[in-house]
Design a protein around this nucleic acid. Structure first.
Length: 272
DNA sequence: ACTATTTCCTGGATGC
DNA sequence: TGCATCCAGGAAATAG
C-alpha cells in the first residue's frame, strides 16, 4: 500500500531510469478505466512528450512533460499517477509478459515500456497543467502550521492524520507509527492535543517518514519499487500489523481497534 | 463547514 | 478439494 515513503521511493527510481526519454505511443486499457481524465486527453497529452522529471507530491507521482523543440507547448503539462492500494509503475522490455491487470502502456523512444498495473483498480491516472496537492507536505510543514491543522477538530487524531486535505501523503501505516512515536492514542480528539503533544507528533511523523524513505518504504502485501525491489521498513514497524505482539519498549500486547473503518494499532501502556 | 459511513475492487486467507 | 465469506484500504460519494 503505497504511502508517502513508498511513492517517494518509486518516483526517485523512475526519475533515474526514464528522465529524458520520449513517449512514442500510449495504450490505455478497456473500461472501466482507472482514469480521472478522459482517455483521449491523456493520450493526446502524453504522446511525443519528453519526460522532464518524475517526482512525488503527497501520494501522487508527478511526471513533468516537456514538448519537443519543434513543437513548443502553449502550457506546461503533467501526468499524474495515483497508485491507490496495489498500483505499480514498471519499466520493462516490450517482450515482458503483460500482466493481467495492465491498464496503460507507454512505449518509450529508448525501446522500453512504462506500464501501469493495478489489480484492485483504486489507482488513478490524469493529465493536468499544474498539479496542486490537496494538503500540506508532511516533510516540510512547519510546527506552527501543523498545529493549526488540528485546531477545533473533534475528529480522532488518527482520522485527521489520514485526511489528505490536511496532510498529503500520510496513510494508515505511518499514521499509526507516528502516533506511537508521539505516545498518543489514535482515538484522542485532534483538538484536545496539547502544544507539547503536537510538537512530539510533528517530530514523530517527520522522523518515521524519513526513516521509511531511507529503507525504501514498507512492503506489506505486494509493494515493490520501480525495479521490483521490496522495501525494508516493515521490519521496523512498532505497532502497525503487530496486534497481540509485545510492544518493543514495554512488552505489553499491541492493541488493534477500528477507527473510521481503518485498523489502528497502538500500545495501551506507552500511548496516552 | 464538519464529520461519519459507505462504496469501489480483487487477491489472499480463512472456514466449513 | 472446493466453495463461500471476509478482510485489506485511499479517496470519492453519500448521509447526517
Amino acid at each position: 500500500m503505497p504511502e508517502l515513503p513508498e511513492v517517494e521511493t518509486i518516483a526517485r527510481g523512475l526519475a533515474k531510469r526514464v528522465t529524458g526519454d520520449v513517449i512514442e505511443s500510449v495504450w490505455l486499457g478497456s473500461k472501466p478505466e482507472p482514469l480521472k481524465s478522459p482517455a483521449a486527453e491523456i493520450e493526446a497529452t502524453l504522446v511525443s512528450k519528453k519526460i522532464a522529471d518524475v517526482r512525488r507530491s503527497g501520494k501522487h507521482i508527478v511526471v513533468d512533460l516537456a514538448s519537443p523543440i519543434n513543437k513548443p507547448a502553449l502550457a506546461s503539462a503533467q501526468w499524474i499517477v495515483h497508485l491507490g492500494m496495489t498500483g505499480r509503475l514498471l519499466v520493462c522490455s516490450p517482450d515482458a509478459e503483460l500482466d493481467k491487470h495492465t491498464h496503460a502502456v507507454l512505449r518509450l523512444a529508448s525501446g522500453r515500456e512504462l506500464r501501469f498495473v493495478d489489480p484492485r483498480r483504486f489507482g488513478r491516472l490524469a493529465v493536468i497543467e499544474k498539479f496542486a496537492p490537496p494538503g500540506s507536505e508532511p516533510l516540510s510543514i512547519s510546527l506552527a502550521d501543523f498545529v493549526g491543522l488540528f485546531r477545533g477538530r473533534k475528529t480522532p487524531i488518527k482520522s485527521a492524520l489520514l485526511n489528505q486535505k490536511l496532510l498529503s501523503g500520510v496513510g494508515n501505516i505511518y499514521a499509526d507509527e507516528a502516533l506511537y512515536r508521539a505516545k498518543l492514542r489514535p482515538r484522542r480528539r485532534a483538538a484536545s492535543l496539547s502544544a507539547e503533544e503536537l510538537r512530539l507528533l510533528h517530530k514523530g511523523l517527520k522522523q518515521v517518514l524519513q526513516e521509511a524513505i531511507r529503507l525504501g518504504g514498507s512492503s506489506i502485501s505486494d509493494y515493490v519499487d520501480s525495479e521490483g525491489q521490496e522495501g525494508f521498513f516493515q521490519l521496523k514497524h512498532r505497532v502497525y500489523g503487530r496486534e497481540g505482539e509485545p510492544c518493543r519498549k514495554c512488552r505489553a500486547p499491541i492493541k488493534r481497534v477500528v477507527i473510521a473503518g481503518r485498523s489502528s494499532h497502538y500500545c495501551p501502556t506507552c500511548q496516552k
